[in-house]
Write a protein that binds this DNA or RNA. Structure first.
Lengths: 104, 104
DNA sequence: GTAATTTTGTCAAAAATTGACAAGTCAAAT
DNA sequence: ATTTGACTTGTCAATTTTTGACAAAATTAC
């Protein structure tokens, strides 16, 4: 079972024996805010994904997948969306691709 | 293949032979902005879902599914997320449910 | 033609997010 | 039992994003 993105960062951090302050500084972030991110009280900012990948030598593409799936999961969870939602979403992605639509 | 939420509104509107102005007023919305919504240039606002359901006698739960799947699809499409993203998201939803986590 | 409808552009107001700092808890060390 | 370091929580101004509203252009129907 997949953990949240914040918990993932926390496990990366502790496995590498870094303090919040140390990692926060590498990510150009306040340690208090990093704590909130790790505890699902704030969102990690997309613009720091590359930095995070570099710090822990991670594959950026995989990290992005991890990141966006987290955002989507939270949206579904927070709004009590039913199980059909993701199936429909997948169809709509195909539709958008087929139409080459420019959305907001 | 599933259309976008905006296109769905548009088809509902035209099937019911309403002008933008007419529907916009029922939805407490500016007609120019409704036009943008129908053309995927703005997001429909969640707080108007119930109103929309009432106007066209739709099942609110289904409409919500339609609405949130649209948001998710656009996020995936706009960010060029790979196909794994939704699979991962589903796992994360289960994880959040199992933990009963309170997110942001 | 022109009248109605739809689309597009713009912008201030409102809402949401972020960065930053202060103050708090907790555990370990001395 | 006090200090130190690590982490958490609360708050708030500043930035960023979204929204509502209006004008005006473009399109369609008559």
């Amino acid at each position: 079972m997949k953990e949240t993105f914040g918990e993932y960062i926390k496990s990366l951090r502790t496995e590498n024996e870094l303090t919040l302050t140390q990692l926060a500084s590498k990510l150009d972030l306040d340690s208090a805010n990093l704590s909130k991110i790790e505890n699902n009280k704030r969102e990690f900012d997309e613009k720091r994904l590359e930095l995070l990948a570099n710090v822990f030598n991670l594959d950026l593409a995989k990290l992005r997948t991890e990141f966006f799936s987290d955002i989507i999961a939270k949206k579904i969870y927070d709004n009590n969306c039913d199980s059909e939602t993701l199936i429909l979403a997948e169809q709509k992605v195909e539709y958008l691709k087929s139409k080459n639509l420019t959305t907001i």
